[in-house]
Amino acid sequence: MAAIEILGLTKTYQVGFWRKRPKCALQPLRLQVEEGEIFGFLGPNGAGKTTTLKMLMGLVYPSAGSARILGCEINDPRMKAQIGFLPEQPYFYDYLTAAELLEYYGQLSGVDAKERKRRVSEVLDRVGLPNVSGMQLRKFSKGMLQRVGVAQAILHNPRVLFFDEPMSGLDPIGRREVRDLMEELKRAGKTVFFSTHILSDAEALCDRVAIIHQGELRGVGAVADLTSSVQGKVEVVWRGNTVLPSVKTLALDSSVTGDTVRAVVLEASQDALIDTLRRERLHIVSVTPLRTSLEEYFVQKLRPAEAAAGVRS
């Protein structure tokens, strides 16, 4: 059974005060996420990621289309007991302590009293907030609130998790931890659906990704499949003052500045170029990936349709 089925969800807003005109936030979207997957929902800011998540959570009603989670309709309470949601930049009742908040959410999710106590301290430990019991949330930093957000999402041990920009507001260590958590959830058989605009996170974690831009789905599939048709680029810098003809044929672009030469080549030509430089006994200063293959794919997908179709030579 599919964990999430999005069947043509559409959202149009009316904008303007006097003369209302429709603005399309999400064009009919069809997606299917299998159980046990980590699914990345990628797109730049304002692409329609949060709108989609809000519709899945029943916060915003779609203009058309429908969706099912775990085979149930969106407003089915039985289904809602089995999902967890972390909103973007979450904010909570700031007069509560983290433990009180989780206790309250546990009650709302129908976790029974004994189980609740155990789970609250367990998830607080898990997200790295073991010693904040007496502190009201109004004193929490942004990163700590994000951790509380993760904690409340996994509190009731849900089968499907929805994370909206889970890494935002976190320091590198925090991001590492959230990644680990997601992998752990996957190992435990959970489904994770998360939105992000940070591609490295998606590339490292996701089984499959969807790319959305301007409310339109631009591509979906396993990372390896999507990137098979595109190649990343690498910038190589070495000491020297001329660009060898053999390098010129390999490089997409090259330039000489003082006594350093830089050239941009496709990932596939990277080894050939380095071999050439070695043969010439040139001193290599650096080899830097400019774009990973997913990023390259992403950039292509974000271009207007005709550009992606190859009109540009």
């Binding site: 009603y61 289309g65 429908s66 309709e73 969106i74 407003n75």
Partner: peptide, 8 residues
């Protein structure tokens, strides 16, 4: 996926 007609 619509406002519940029963509640309405």
């Amino acid at each position: 996926m619509k406002p519940s007609s029963k509640i309405t």
